[in-house]
Design a protein around this nucleic acid. Structure first.
Lengths: 132, 132
DNA sequence: CTTTCACCTTGACATTGTCTAAAATACTAA
DNA sequence: TTAGTATTTTAGACAATGTCAAGGTGAAAG
């Protein structure tokens, strides 16, 4: 992955130490962190970063298309470094969220919804991940 | 629709005036109200009902299967008097949420997800409702 | 009448998220 | 370099969502 500074520059965002700390965590995070998760981890590399800056930076990244935002869990929005289209599976036991590749599922019948213009869609599944 | 008192009795919930006010609004509501919406409307019929009682009653109804709960909108959980399986369409302009009948869409490929045991799923769509 | 029990209310509390004012920092131009 | 301007950051206030505990109310049973 490109380094945080190039990524920010490429999107016309000034790379400050605070933003770098946020980007370095959130864009290489394999899980689906909440804003507070990002705040906690960003503090490790940049102990002075404030909550407001974390929120500002996350919103900036989402605006620029570098980060996905999902409202599939109760209580807090979660962020997703994977900005490719994909579906989501939520393990109800652990709360873990898994990305499901876009081409694994096919949704048929959207053409029948004459009253609706669909910009985007996804399948949300709940269940339990099988033990290996 | 059956009256609120019978519905509550049928589920072994004591029908108090507060609970009746909540049930009467939320179970005949065609939209997808938040807990606060329910609170506001229940107050009209029962001006002393408290926020805590509204939350308690809503959680009871969800437990008993009389009410659906969805976490598809930012900021607050929404409730759904329609407890049949269905999909959801969210109008990004207005924030309105529409139920999409279950048999209008078909999701194929779930069998390929060998690592996951799916309890339930739905399609969430975002877009704009076409003007008539 | 008193006890008991379920219920309700109030208010405290934690969490998420936004906003503002002021301080700190970083660019720009002479 | 220095002054001036623009951008960022911070701390704290604030509002909204939701849960919880403590105490109050009221009805039924003995």
């Amino acid at each position: 992955m490109k380094d945080a500074i190039s990524i920010l520059r490429q999107c016309d965002i000034q790379p400050t130490p605070q933003r770098i700390a946020v980007v370095e965590y959130v864009l290489k995070c394999k899980t689906h962190p909440s804003a507070d998760d990002v705040f906690t981890h960003a503090r490790k590399n940049c102990p002075t970063v404030s909550r407001a800056t974390v929120y500002n930076t996350l919103n900036l990244l989402v605006e620029k298309g570098l980060l996905g935002m999902q409202t599939i869990r109760e209580g807090a929005v979660i962020f997703d470094a994977n900005v490719e289209k994909h579906h989501h599976f939520i393990d109800d036991d652990t709360g873990d969220i898994y990305d499901i590749p876009w081409d694994q599922l096919e949704v048929k019948g959207k053409g029948k919804l004459k009253d609706f213009e669909i910009f985007e869609f996804q399948v949300i599944m709940h269940g339990r991940r099988k033990k290996k």
